[in-house]
Amino acid sequence: MELILTSLLFLALVTTAVAIALVRRLFAVVMLAGVFSLLSAMLFVLMDAVDVAFTEAAVGAGISSVLMLGTIALTARSEKRPTHYSLVPLSIVILTGLVLIYGTLDMPNFGDPMSPVQTHVGPDYIQRTPTDIDVPNIVTAVLASYRGFDTLGEVTVVFTAGLGVVLLISGLGRRIRRSRREDKAPSKGAKN
């Protein structure tokens, strides 16, 4: 049953990806990207990675779609028709895909109990969490406590990203400069 569901979801995922590549109207592309995210979230649920699925559904399908729509509103509604078709990008993509698939051949199967992750780090956390931290969700224990430093780094990355966007495109600098100019202007008038 799980195998059938996974295969169906992967099929739908590939179909959506092909549709994204073919459609020219960017509004449809954004909606399809949301569908792609929701399908990935379902796949993550099937793989028992509920936390990741949660994030994918909230960020990928929710916020990203809104932001992409905002970007479309600022730029163009539809993709430009390509002037010529070149084989080089297509062959590079196919080659990279083949290399990646070749890379997975050495990896342990999904859920293999003898894989290094399951024999080394995983059991350690599962054994220690009830006595050390005593929270039912081990993902939270690893994220916030055992790997607290990493999460601090992640929050800083989010912070920096937000800072960059605000500084680059919110027009904050322009508004500050304008308000400064307005502050200066009356004082000049007072001198004269």
Binding site: I63, V66, L67, G70, T71, A73, L74, I133, V135, T140, A141, A144, S145, G148, T151, L152, E154, V155, V158, F159, A161, G162, V165, V166, I169, S170
Partner: peptide, 25 residues
């Protein structure tokens, strides 16, 4: 500790999402 740091994460992510939305919209 976990409650405190999760609150920190939540506040920053909320702020960044709102800031990006404001910036675009």
């Amino acid at each position: 500790g976990i409650i405190a740091v999760e609150l920190g994460v939540g506040v920053t992510v909320f702020g960044v999402m709102m800031a990006i939305y404001y910036a675009f919209a």
